[in-house]
């Protein structure tokens, strides 16, 4: 992704933001759409397009759970670990998904590159705790362990939507 492409994406939405600095988030989301994650070069290009330093852009990118600075699987499953979900068993849910996908108990990407499991802070679905979210699109809950298995199987069977909105 080049700075020109990112600028071309930002130009039409520029006047929606009071501060130029705020454009960094749409720029990051747009740049991430290409590969599903951002490389160091992408960060540098975003910085050039938004007149910020690469260090600052990287710090923002690292702040958000849905901006990825490392490669992720084709689909990302986020398990909420905030209070309501934790009280309703999100620890077991996360542990189950992690061991099922063969990743460390903090999350990671399955060996076949299909699914990334990660922790998420409150997804705004406390009434459906424990909940999980697929990419940034589909939030579901309460999720039992067998339902989680079904979700993972379904994601493997489905073609990956393009562009990925995470």
């Amino acid at each position: 992704m080049t700075a020109e492409e990112i600028r071309a994406h930002l130009d039409p939405i520029r006047d929606q933001f009071a501060e130029e600095r705020s454009l960094v988030l749409p720029a990051l989301k747009f740049a991430q759409g290409e590969k599903g994650h951002l490389t160091g070069d992408d960060v540098t290009e975003v910085a050039a397009a938004t007149n910020l330093t690469p260090a600052y852009v990287e710090s923002i990118a690292s702040f958000y759970d849905r901006i990825y600075l490392d490669p992720v699987g084709k689909r990302v499953v986020s398990v909420c670990v905030s209070l309501s979900c934790m009280l309703n068993g999100s620890d077991e849910l996360l542990e189950h998904l992690c061991s099922r996908e063969g990743v460390s108990h903090e999350g990671g990407t399955s060996a076949d590159g299909e699914i990334t499991v990660q922790e998420a802070q409150c997804l705004g679905a406390c009434d459906r705790a424990p909940c999980l979210q697929v990419d940034a699109e589909e939030t579901m809950g309460p999720v039992t362990l067998s339902e989680a298995d079904a979700v993972a199987d379904r994601l493997r069977a489905e073609p990956q939507p393009r562009p990925v909105l995470r």
Binding site: V43, L52, T53, A55, Y56, E58, S59, S62, F63
Partner: peptide
């Protein structure tokens, strides 16, 4: 105003860092 030192991650994981560890 060099802008090279930043805080990455957030909450309990926050740490001081430079761009890609430069």
């Amino acid at each position: 105003e060099d802008g090279n030192l930043t805080m990455s991650e957030r909450g309990g994981r926050s740490e001081i860092t430079t761009f890609t560890g430069d």
